[in-house]
Design a protein around this nucleic acid. Structure first.
Length: 213
DNA sequence: ATCCCGAGGG
DNA sequence: CCCTCTGGAT
């Protein structure tokens, strides 16, 4: 298959092929509402979603709402999220985030990007996950997988995730950005694995410069 | 650029 | 042992 000449062409081809490969890519962080997804996504930094799903049931049982989490003893939250790594930072961030929701956003998860990134522990990646998965708003989360794969495919030259996001946005229709990200992430976990990519099994290999074999 | 900082894979 | 796992703040 011929390699599309432009970065945008490569982005579109990538999404076409990944949409066939992964028709129903879904967010695998367990959650029942936007607040829970926001907490789970903060916890997912440098950690597998599987491990996050191991700690959130107890966490949400103890602190089901922003109001409850805002008043939680830090030591108890640290204990509950310890196995996700960076536990001191994450505990402080999710409690502080809950306090901000109560104090500034009427206990609701805001949809505006500028509001979301004002919350402790929430950067653009986390904000875009919440927007696209829980709120039905446009959002293209750029995580380690999205950054790595778009770089390998020559869709972007940037290394900074925020620059990558801003460069990718015009290449992908707003309504498809969340799915595009989800599919790249799934592909990164299953096939284009950082440490040992399975190029033989990759549907993108025909136009991937790094698919040597 | 550096720190946070646990768990699992190769 | 070294790297990676859906990063964010300083």
């Amino acid at each position: 298959m011929a390699r599309p000449r432009t970065p945008k062409g490569r982005a579109r081809r990538t999404h076409e092929l990944l949409a066939e490969e992964y028709p129903e890519a879904v967010c695998e962080l367990d959650h029942d509402n936007p607040f829970q997804l926001l907490v789970a996504t903060i916890l997912s930094a440098q950690c597998t979603d599987k491990r996050v799903n191991m700690v959130t049931p107890d966490l949400f049982a103890a602190y089901p709402t922003p109001e409850k989490l805002a008043e939680a003893p830090l030591a108890h939250v640290e204990e509950l999220v310890r196995s996700t790594g960076f536990f001191a930072t994450k505990a402080r961030n999710i409690v502080g985030m809950a306090q901000d929701l109560v104090n500034h956003f009427d206990g609701q998860v805001p949809g505006k990007m500028s509001d979301l990134v004002s919350l402790p522990g929430v950067g653009r990646k986390t904000a875009n996950v919440v927007r696209s998965v829980a709120l039905g708003l446009p959002g293209l989360p750029v995580d380690t997988h999205v950054a790595r794969i778009t770089g390998l495919l020559g869709i972007t030259e940037h290394k900074d995730p925020v620059k990558i996001e801003l460069e990718l946005n015009p290449m992908v229709p707003a309504a498809e950005r969340g799915e595009f990200s989800l599919r790249l992430i799934l592909h990164g976990r299953r096939v284009c694995i950082a440490r040992r990519p399975r190029c033989h099994e990759c549907v993108l290999a025909s136009f991937c410069p790094s698919a040597g074999g």
